[in-house]
Design a binder for these strands. Structure first.
Lengths: 177, 177
DNA sequence: CTTGATATCTACTGGTATATAGATAGATTG
DNA sequence: CAATCTATCTATATACCAGTAGATATCAAG
């Protein structure tokens, strides 16, 4: 069994992706984990601490995923497809990108979390730029920004329409131009 | 002086764009308008009613803006630029698109508001498709979806970076391809 | 077998949320 | 003038929220 601290984080991640970081309370976490709210405070002193842990773990997970793709998948186009498939999977669970959600909630998060979020998106773009570079794009950083923007926006629309193909259609044309 | 009901809506719109619809309370509105929370309930029976009024007014405003552009601006490319300039203006006020924000908060809004939101984005895409059609794009509806996705996503990133040029760079290439 | 760390609990505080009931002052209308 | 409507108030209900203090249980190390 995974330890409580991790279970809390897993649950908070899920809830953030569906209802937003301000859309759940320590009571929701406690009820689901099966402990009291005060015990959640034991693991994460404040909700701001929880937010930071959430974003930092997420960035590490992203980096690990990139490393795995770099090692296991030879073709950059296939790597991109694999990443998009991952994000598309959120739609079926009525979720969106956790960091996209937090970026929307920008005004109610601490400076530390804002910095962590910005780092997440920069890491994301850097990796994307490498893939586009390998694919021979003339301006990899520019296309990487366009890709992330389109991805994040498409997740909002896809969930609204209940149609994951919105993501594919929004990203169509980035690889084969 | 604008009437109270409108002032409440204006204020709620602003707050939704910066902190999200779940990021403010009737108390915030009351304090700013200078009346009691119970008086806000007089104008908008429940917060869900307020949400619906917000989205519906926003859609009407969007349609009016489109009509004005169609009448006053001859070149479709100039029309697009004008719309983007409008959205870019949000960034300086630490705001994003109101309907984009509500789409992020999808899981906590009523079915009626969800429908109104979907309608907003469909209207937006329909108008965009007309502009791209006039510009000779081979597949206007497809490019309209890509444009909205990129715009919504770019607003999230632009506010995070505190840099409105992120929007321009995310939308670069849509008009002159 | 005692000490100290870990993880949980009970019980509580102070604050905020949305919402409703009932009263009132002033304008409008028949 | 009487009835009604508009917009507000006071007061309250009900529920939730984040966070804290302090007691308790478990267990490993010395």
């Amino acid at each position: 069994m995974t330890d409580t601290k991790t279970r809390i984080l897993d649950l908070a991640e899920n809830l953030t992706q569906s209802k937003g970081f301000n859309g759940f309370s320590y009571l929701d976490l406690a009820a689901e984990v099966g402990i009291k709210t005060s015990s959640i405070h034991y693991h994460y002193k404040s909700k701001a601490d929880l937010a930071l842990a959430l974003v930092e773990r997420h960035r590490e997970a992203l980096e690990a995923a990139f490393k795995r793709l770099d090692d296991d998948v030879a073709n950059p186009a296939d790597r991109l497809e694999s990443i998009v498939t991952h994000f598309k999977g959120y739609i079926g669970e009525e979720k969106i990108c956790m960091c996209g959600m937090m970026a929307a909630e920008f005004e109610s998060i601490s400076p530390a979390v804002r910095k962590a979020l910005a780092l997440y998106f920069r890491d994301f773009q850097n990796w994307l730029a490498k893939q586009f570079s390998a694919l021979g794009h003339p301006n990899p950083p520019a296309v990487a920004l366009q890709y992330v923007s389109a991805l994040e926006g498409s997740l909002l629309l896809a969930r609204l329409e209940g149609d994951a193909s919105v993501v594919d259609r929004s990203l169509d044309g980035f690889v084969n131009t």
